[in-house]
């Protein structure tokens, strides 16, 4: 973990709700895809945790959805603004069990860590398939970015206005060696139920500190209570018990 000042290079809306934030600063504490950063915003007491999408040199990319006061305020921040970040928080996806045909399943801004993961897997020459789930055609983002990595991409929309109609699980009927998922809890639970292979998921819950001190984000696992922020946010399908999460 590091506390660093970052400067906004770019803050671009991708859809009506989702934006991309590019920041310049010391990202050296970020070790792998799945880790998150915690942003301090003016006037808000607690930091806001956001999953890392990509790190390239000193450029850090985050995707965020405007959901509350914090993220609404973020949308207004111009380039040049300095932000106080805790970086390198949490664990990351374990690439070892991926196999030769991993499936990455994202819902909404769950695409953020899936992008960094896809990039890492592609760099190892692994054939990556991605399912991106959205509510409607107007909500779709990052389809081309995933394709540019060389991933095979399927887009699903709940209302059927773009790509395959229905939930992401509708596109899971195919062979894959392992899965990784990030998105709404109900979606990830459905993905875990549906998949016959092992897999990993990245969990988002309300957090206090983001670095393991406050015990605000304990979840139940087969090996006892774990902190989402410090022992997670990535959990194996087999270890998470889903107690109180759905």
């Amino acid at each position: 973990m590091k506390q660093e000042l970052f400067t906004i290079i770019e803050n671009t809306p991708l859809t009506a709700k989702v934006s991309r934030l590019r920041l310049r600063g010391d990202s050296s504490a970020i070790e792998g895809p799945g880790q998150f950063v915690d942003l301090k915003l003016e006037g808000l007491f607690l930091r806001r945790p956001l999953s890392v999408c990509d790190v390239e040199g000193d450029c850090l990319t985050l995707l965020y959805e405007t959901a509350g006061r914090g993220t609404e305020q973020m949308r207004e921040l111009p380039a040049g603004t300095q932000l106080d970040l805790l970086t390198g928080l949490g664990n990351s996806f374990d690439l070892t069990p991926a196999g030769d045909a991993p499936l990455l399943i994202a819902g909404g801004t769950g695409a953020s860590p899936m992008y960094g993961l896809a990039k890492r897997l592609r760099a190892r020459g692994v054939a990556v398939s991605v399912i991106l789930g959205f509510a409607a055609a107007a909500d779709v983002f990052y389809e081309e970015e995933f394709r540019a990595l060389g991933a095979e991409v399927t887009v699903c929309t709940e209302d059927g206005s773009y790509g395959l109609p229905g939930f992401v699980t509708a596109a899971m009927d195919r062979p894959f060696s392992y899965f990784y998922t990030c998105g709404p809890k109900a979606m990830m639970h459905a993905v875990c139920e549906r998949a016959k292979t092992g897999g990993q998921l990245s969990l988002a819950v309300r957090m206090g500190c983001g670095f393991g001190a406050c015990m605000g984000c304990r979840v139940e696992t087969v090996s006892g209570g774990k902190r989402v922020c410090k022992d997670g946010p990535v959990f194996r399908k087999e270890e998470l018990l889903w107690k109180d999460l759905l």
């Binding site: 007491f45 309300r206 206090g208 605000g216 979840v219």
Partner: peptide
């Protein structure tokens, strides 16, 4: 003690609320 169910944390102006429950 396992503590209380989630969510245990809320934000507010100038502070925060916690209901960790002595985990």
């Amino acid at each position: 003690r396992e503590g209380n169910p989630l969510p245990r944390i809320a934000d507010c102006l100038g502070g925060m609320l916690n209901a960790v429950g002595l985990q």
